[in-house]
Design a protein around this nucleic acid. Structure first.
Length: 352
DNA sequence: ATGCATGAGTC
DNA sequence: ACTCATGCATA
């Protein structure tokens, strides 16, 4: 999408000194060395039976009872319909978008979809405000990647250590310390949660970021230098998702003030420009990388069909599906989880 | 940019 | 066993 980005992958990232204790164990399990086994014979047809078998009692139990062999295609078509209903009114083309990618859109005026999480992020709006304050910002150190300030001496090393630490940002973000529950948050809740505003900000952010010549990965790392309480580094993935609005509404709201703070500071530093290049840390080759399993197209199509009919299959169902598709149960389970998550993502930009 | 995965917190 | 925020690996 945007060329200026150099795309450095692997956003390792260190935890800000005063951050939270790493609660991550470098578990590098050999996840799934076994990449899916594409099965030549279209067992897909059989899958149909699986679908109409023992669907959890929830809803459409025998709705598909008639569905039989050779009807997967039918099922998929059906799936499309269902998914359309699920994701609400889709102004778009009536075409099958088995790729439930975008989804959730709420009327701009409408209430945010799942702000249900009561404790989810309080507004860190204040943090952002603080940062914007000229006084406090003077204490900032290295936000901009340029002068990169590799914190004193830490070296990012290998796979295993990278993600130690920040995981809880989410938590931190989600549960801001009580003392952070600032009244300021209540002052402009609308501006902060309005999808429109978020969308506009994401766009502005991207533009200005690019203007600064900073990559998404750079921003992620620089965030840790913005010693905001409970804020550590983030990955390129997350920054990318923020810019493309592919995060949950809540997540977008939580991240906005932080990224805004970084942006302000980075631009400020860009003005006084200084700093000297710092030698990049060395990568301690060696660690084994995690292998990513990829589900072959045929299997994926089946999964999508199942999903359309029943987004939340029971454990047994999952086991059955996994067997049918010759995939590990866990892979299937995770696939469904991710699929559900996708369904909830934002991405209202393209839907008006 | 996105697919598959992890882990904390919940229910 | 799920949701959510997030990340590594990869297309």
């Amino acid at each position: 999408m945007y060329s200026p980005d150099k795309m450095k992958s692997g956003g390792g990232l260190m935890a800000p000194p005063g951050c939270f204790p790493a609660r991550y164990s470098p578990t590098y399990r050999t996840s799934d060395p076994r990449r899916c086994v594409p099965n030549p014979s279209s067992r897909i047809l059989e899958d149909a039976s699986l679908m109409c078998n023992s669907w959890s009692p929830r809803h459409n139990g025998d709705l598909f009872g008639g569905l039989n062999d050779g009807l997967l295609s039918r099922a998929e078509a059906l799936a499309v319909d269902i998914s359309k209903h699920q994701s609400g009114p889709q102004p778009g083309p009536p075409l099958p978008q088995l790729k439930h990618d975008m989804v959730y859109h709420h009327g701009v005026g409408g209430p945010p979809p799942h702000n249900a999480r009561p404790h989810q992020m309080g507004h860190h709006g204040m943090e952002g405000l603080d940062m914007l304050d000229p006084l406090s910002s003077s204490s900032m150190t290295t936000l901009a990647p340029m002068g990169e300030a590799a914190p004193p001496h830490h070296q990012l090393h290998g796979y295993g250590m990278n993600h130690v630490m920040n995981h809880h940002h989410a938590g931190a973000l989600a549960h801001p310390p009580a003392h952070l529950a600032h009244p300021a948050a209540a002052l402009h809740p609308d501006t902060d949660t309005d999808p429109r505003e978020l969308e506009a900000f994401a766009e502005r952010f991207k533009q200005r970021r690019i203007k600064l010549g900073v990559t998404q990965a750079d921003v992620g790392k620089a965030l840790a230098n913005l010693k905001l309480p409970g804020v550590g580094a983030l990955s390129q993935s997350t920054i990318c998702r923020f810019e493309s609005l592919t995060l949950s509404h809540n997540n977008m709201i939580a991240l906005k003030p932080i990224l805004q703070a970084w942006l302000e500071e980075a631009e400020a530093q860009a003005k006084n420009k200084r700093r000297d290049p710092d030698a990049p840390s060395v990568l301690p080759a060696g660690e084994k990388k995690r292998k990513r399993t990829s589900i072959a197209a045929p299997e994926k199509r089946s999964l999508e069909a199942y999903f359309a009919v029943q987004p939340r299959p029971s454990g047994e169902k999952i086991t059955a599906i996994a067997e049918k598709l010759d995939l590990k149960k866990n892979v299937v389970r995770v696939w469904f989880c991710n699929q559900r998550q996708k369904q909830k993502r934002m991405k209202f930009a393209a839907q008006h």
